[in-house]
Structure formats: structure tokens, C-alpha cells
Design a protein around this nucleic acid. Structure first.
Lengths: 212, 212
DNA sequence: CGTCTTGCCTACCACGTGGTAGACAGAGCT
DNA sequence: AGCTCTGTCTACCACGTGGTAGGCAAGACG
């Protein structure tokens, strides 16, 4: 009873611990033994729920991408104006990773370990709303509010990469920024960078002397 | 003789192969057995040159950071004006990673695997010239050419992270960008973003309506 | 010449890994 | 009651790992 309430579902508890450990130590660096210990069961019991280590990884990944797939479109469609949508999408993405930095770490690791599989997963889960985003960017370009020399797909991709990177390796650069808690400061700058590089200021910037 | 020219130095050949394999498969995902096979020797022979796997990793890392430490300051000090320096630093960094994407991958992996050690290494090897950079940014801010709301350390850190991310996980997003070779397009957008977010256009941008 | 050092080798070891076989307890159902 | 299904366990296995011991050839050098 209260055992069940305290441990709602073994399968999902395995997923939670596996997600954490895969994110922290990587797939190769994590033994299913250590996962089972974190859950509080023996290894064969874990293998009863997930037939192999690879299957566990796939489940962890699917579980995380499903969250992303479900939550973000809701936020996006809730926003009204184009600029609002971009804002909301950026903060939703940031929140997704900041809420649990292990998400960023896990994604980063998987992208490094299995780029091909991740490309396929991204096409399936991420493409829909990045498509929305690039669409709005193009509209903004035609309307003149968004810089015309901007590459919509590359820009979006870069912001995702930058967000993941900022959160995933936050601790590394953290001490380079002496005082502040690091990640917030890093993310604030990311948002600033995103806006500054996106929206059109004026055709002829004052600092043009700096460029060729 | 020509054996020696073809295989200049066993130790450095081990370093080359280890760098590649660690970058591609990660430290935990790479056995010293596979490294020795790539070099064409037996495992104990490798362990004769590097007493342990960890020692090999440290050597690989030191080797790479030394390259960085040596090359970049030369380029930086060669540049004259402030804007020129920033430009040169950005392209030098980009070139460093593009020349061999494994460098970016290796750094990304190590930052994920051992953030504390990497923080120490970064302080030692990277700090000097990021210090130069942030100094120039601050000068630009006082002169008015660089946006005053920019956080110099966070901006620099973010650009490094973004560059590493763009190159390291390039293949993943690559197919999202249909036509172009991916990474170049990605890097071009990175440079554009960097400049746009750095330099001051005009106090009141036209697109201010998009913001709160 | 003999000896020493360098570099690579074969053979071995202890250990942790992912995975399997099969026993066993309990709940649910007929 | 008996039977089945679910979930967990103990015990085992084959294998790959990082690392060590010790031999052996070739060059350097007294």
C-alpha cells in the first residue's frame, strides 16, 4: 500500500534512475548493475522489465522525447503573435533543460554517441515545431522585423545547440564567471544573443566600421 | 628508415589514434585494446608508453590543449585593432574545430564526463586569451561600439560552447538543413549571430515592438 | 667482447560486464 | 482447491576489460 505509493511503479523508477545515471556518466559509463542498485532491486529484476541495456536506453530516450513532444507544442500554440511565439518557444526550451539539466546532458551524450539514430529521432520528434518556428522567422523576414541575412534553420538549430550546451556543460564554464550562479547568467546572455541576432535594428548599424 | 618516416614515433601515433577514438566513442566506450590495434601494436606495448588508460587520456588532453594554447595567442597578438582581434579569434577558434571536428567532440565529452577536471584545465589553458577577449569587449562597451547590456564573460563562454556544439553535433542537425553541407552553413550563422549580438547598431532598434 | 637499456612481445590474472536459467512467492481466477 | 501469471530472486556463464610478469631481440656503449 504505502509501499506502492512510495514506489509508484518499478518500471518508471528504473527509467528515472537510468535517465539520471546515463546523463551523469554516459551510457558506456553506466552499468545496469548500478541502475538496479539505485532503484533498490537486483539486476535480473531490471532485465525482466527491460530485456537489454540497449532497450533500457531506448526507453529512456523515448520517454524524454515524448515529454518534449507533448509539452512544447501546447506552449507554442498557446502563444498568439509571432514574436510572442518565438519568445515562448525559447523560454520553454530553456525551462525544459533548466528544470532538469540531465535532460541536456543526456541529449548531448546521445548526439555524440549515436548521431545517426539521434538524427532520426530529431526528425520525428523535433521537426514539427522547429518547422513552425522557422516558418514564423521567414514571415518576420518578409515583414522586415527579422534580419534578412539570417538562416532560419541554422539559427534555430544553433539556438537549440547553444541551449543544450549552456546547460549541459554549465558547471565547466561556471567558475569562469566568478560571482553569479553561472547557468542563469549564461542563459540570460543566450536569450539576449538570440534576440539581438534575430530582430532587425536598422539597415546601417553604427558599428559597421568594425566589419570589412 | 622509411619505416620511421612512415611511422614517425610510436608514442605520438598512439596519441593520434587515441584522440580519434576517444572523440568518436568516448573514454568509456574505447578500450585501450582498440587503440593499440589502430596503431598496429599489442596492448602491453601501448601500456609501456602510457602506464594506464587514465594516463593516456590525460596525455591526449594535454596534447590538444597545448596546441590550442600555443596557436591562438599567436593569432591574437598578430591582429591589431579591437574588432580585428575579435574577428580573428572567432575564426581561429572555428578553424581549430573545423580542421578536426574530433577536437570539439573530445572536449564536449570530457566536459560532460569530468566537469571539475576540465574546469581546472580551462582555467589554466584558456583563461589567458578569453581574458584578452573580454578585456577588448569591455573597451568596446566603453567606446560605445559594443552593446552595453552584454555580459562579456558569458558571451565569450557561450560562443565557445556554441562553436564546440555546432561542430561536435553537426551531423545530427545536418540533415535538418537539407541542401548545404551543414557545418559550414551552421558556422556561418554562428559568426553572424556573434557579430549581431555583439556590436551596437543604434540605441533604439526598429523591432523594439517585439519586446516587452 | 659483455652488459645494459629500449621497446615490443606472449601469457596470464582478477574482475566487472551483460545476459540467462530456473526456483520461488504471491495474487487472481476458475 | 488447483492453476497461471507476474515479479523478484540466487546462481551461473562467457567474455572483454585494465593491468602485470617476464621473456626476447636489437642497438648503444664500456
Amino acid at each position: 500500500m504505502n509501499v506502492e505509493t512510495h514506489q509508484p511503479d518499478v518500471r518508471s523508477r528504473i527509467l528515472v534512475e537510468a535517465t539520471r545515471l546515463f546523463a551523469e556518466r554516459g551510457y558506456d559509463g553506466t552499468s545496469i548493475q548500478s541502475v538496479s542498485e539505485a532503484v533498490g532491486i537486483r539486476r535480473p529484476s531490471l532485465l525482466y522489465h527491460f530485456n537489454s541495456k540497449a532497450e533500457l536506453r531506448d526507453a529512456v530516450l523515448a520517454n524524454m522525447l515524448a515529454y518534449w513532444k507533448d509539452t512544447l507544442p501546447t506552449i507554442l500554440t498557446a502563444a498568439t503573435s509571432g514574436g510572442d511565439r518565438l519568445d515562448k518557444a525559447m523560454s520553454a526550451m530553456a525551462k525544459f533543460f533548466v528544470d532538469d539539466p540531465n535532460r541536456a546532458r543526456l541529449l548531448a551524450r546521445e548526439m555524440l554517441d549515436r548521431p545517426d539514430d539521434m538524427r532520426a529521432l530529431f526528425r520525428e520528434h523535433l521537426r514539427p515545431w522547429t518547422g513552425l518556428l522557422t516558418g514564423y522567422i521567414r514571415m518576420g523576414q518578409e515583414a522586415g522585423s527579422v534580419r534578412s541575412d539570417l538562416d532560419p534553420e541554422a539559427w534555430t538549430l544553433q539556438m537549440i545547440t547553444a541551449a543544450i550546451g549552456a546547460v549541459a556543460v554549465g558547471p565547466v564554464g561556471g567558475h569562469m564567471l566568478a560571482d553569479a550562479p553561472g547557468i542563469p547568467r549564461q542563459l540570460r546572455e543566450l536569450v539576449r544573443t538570440a534576440k539581438a541576432s534575430l530582430f532587425n535594428p536598422r539597415p546601417q548599424p553604427a558599428a559597421a566600421a568594425e566589419e570589412s
